[in-house]
Amino acid sequence: MSKSFFIDTTLCTACRACQVACKQWHDLPAEETENRGTYENPADLSFDTYKLVRMREEVIGGKLQWLFFPEQCRHCAEAPCLDTAGDETAVYKDAATGAIIFTANTKGLNVDEIIESCPYNIPRKGPDGTLAKCDMCLDRVHNGLLPACVKTCPTGAMNFGERSEMVALAKSRLSTVKKTNPKAALLDPDDVNVIYLVTEKPSLYHEFAVASNTAFDITRQVALRRMFKPLTNIVSRLL
């Protein structure tokens, strides 16, 4: 049985405790930032930033809205990065949770291709070529704890549990929210294990809020190509 997140953006206040909790649990260094004329910081995900709350000001139907989107890896059900890497010591799916995990062995793979394969533009390259991203706080989850970002969320925007429970919660919240926000939708709920609930057009929250229509198709093609690469490539890496 896989685990899932349900991220209810209608309840997110962008306090960004999740962003800090993520850094704290993973002991990631702070980045040197500057105010770029927005509260949103750092400017993007990075090798040292796995979680980032996107903040957008939009006038929708004559009404100002401040849209918050806590961005992180979606832990795809069929993860293109995993297929693209084609090396289970570098990118693998955790059997107990369904988490997609990057290891130090990503170093030396064709990381640009792996990054490109991600329909949500998540993985980031370190100075030595290693890849990093959200790991679902696997060490916490394997020990019965909630991921750090979920544990710290004050409003219930961040949720985590068995996939069936999260899907049920997402559907129930969707039907409630739809009553006042007819455009409300769950983002790619069948493809990912991080299900977002939004009330406006997804692209208003963030460019990569949903997978582009073709993203999965392209990455599947990439994956397919890789499958035909000489098997010895992979075997040699395993040795």
């Binding site: 702070a30 930032t33 105010n35 509260y39 910081n41 750092p42």
Partner: peptide
């Protein structure tokens, strides 16, 4: 949200300064 009072306890905290540096 990211700083507290005059920031004495939060400005030297790199994770918080990262969020609101200036």
């Amino acid at each position: 949200s990211e700083h507290w009072q005059t920031g004495l306890m939060t400005r030297p905290q790199a994770w918080l300064l990262e969020l609101q540096p200036q």
